[in-house]
Amino acid sequence: MTFTEQIITIAAVVAGTMLTRFLPFILFPANKKTPPLVAFLGKMLPAAVMGMLVVYSLKDTQILSGSHGLPEAIAVALTV
């Protein structure tokens, strides 16, 4: 990668990072009410993401063979 390509890559990463950091403050300033859809998503998405992660991490658990999912059950119990 040439020096120019490195500079362009770094500039693109910096621009993308700044855009994702500053865009919410530009779209939803403090003096305006948050749209109901955004408030709903802010309330519901954390639980939905956690549920999806639990399902994804346990999807290949073999309950009828080996240790019968005991390590996974212990991990879930400790996490809860």
Rank of each mutant, 00 (worst) to 15 (best):
1 M>H: 07
2 T>H: 03
2 T>N: 09
3 F>K: 10
3 F>I: 07
4 T>W: 14
4 T>S: 13
5 E>P: 01
6 Q>M: 11
7 I>T: 05
8 I>N: 12
9 T>Y: 09
9 T>N: 06
10 I>H: 00
10 I>C: 06
10 I>W: 05
11 A>G: 03
11 A>T: 03
12 A>K: 09
12 A>G: 02
12 A>D: 00
12 A>C: 04
12 A>H: 03
15 A>K: 01
16 G>Q: 00
17 T>G: 05
17 T>C: 11
18 M>P: 01
18 M>W: 10
19 L>R: 06
19 L>G: 03
20 T>K: 11
20 T>C: 12
20 T>A: 14
20 T>V: 13
21 R>V: 11
22 F>M: 10
23 L>P: 01
24 P>N: 05
24 P>F: 04
24 P>C: 08
25 F>N: 10
25 F>P: 06
25 F>R: 14
26 I>H: 00
27 L>A: 03
28 F>R: 01
28 F>V: 03
28 F>P: 01
28 F>A: 01
29 P>V: 02
29 P>A: 00
29 P>D: 01
29 P>Q: 00
30 A>I: 05
30 A>W: 02
31 N>M: 14
31 N>T: 14
31 N>P: 04
32 K>L: 10
32 K>P: 02
33 K>H: 07
33 K>T: 07
33 K>P: 06
34 T>K: 07
34 T>C: 09
36 P>H: 11
36 P>L: 11
38 V>C: 01
38 V>R: 05
38 V>F: 00
38 V>I: 09
39 A>C: 04
39 A>P: 02
39 A>M: 09
39 A>E: 09
41 L>H: 00
41 L>E: 01
41 L>S: 05
42 G>L: 02
42 G>R: 05
42 G>D: 02
42 G>T: 04
43 K>A: 13
43 K>E: 13
43 K>N: 09
44 M>T: 12
44 M>E: 15
46 P>I: 09
46 P>F: 10
47 A>M: 14
47 A>G: 10
47 A>K: 12
47 A>R: 13
48 A>E: 04
48 A>G: 06
48 A>Q: 07
50 M>Y: 08
50 M>R: 09
50 M>H: 05
50 M>W: 08
51 G>H: 03
52 M>Q: 12
52 M>Y: 15
53 L>S: 05
54 V>E: 00
55 V>L: 15
55 V>G: 07
55 V>C: 14
55 V>W: 15
56 Y>N: 13
56 Y>T: 08
56 Y>S: 09
58 L>V: 11
58 L>K: 01
59 K>N: 07
59 K>V: 12
60 D>R: 01
60 D>H: 00
61 T>L: 02
62 Q>W: 03
62 Q>N: 11
63 I>D: 02
64 L>I: 09
64 L>H: 06
65 S>P: 11
65 S>W: 15
65 S>R: 15
65 S>L: 15
67 S>W: 14
67 S>V: 13
68 H>L: 15
68 H>I: 15
68 H>S: 13
68 H>N: 15
70 L>A: 13
71 P>C: 11
72 E>D: 14
72 E>W: 04
74 I>Y: 04
75 A>D: 10
76 V>E: 01
76 V>G: 04
76 V>T: 03
76 V>S: 07
77 A>K: 11
78 L>F: 09
79 T>G: 14
79 T>N: 13
80 V>N: 15
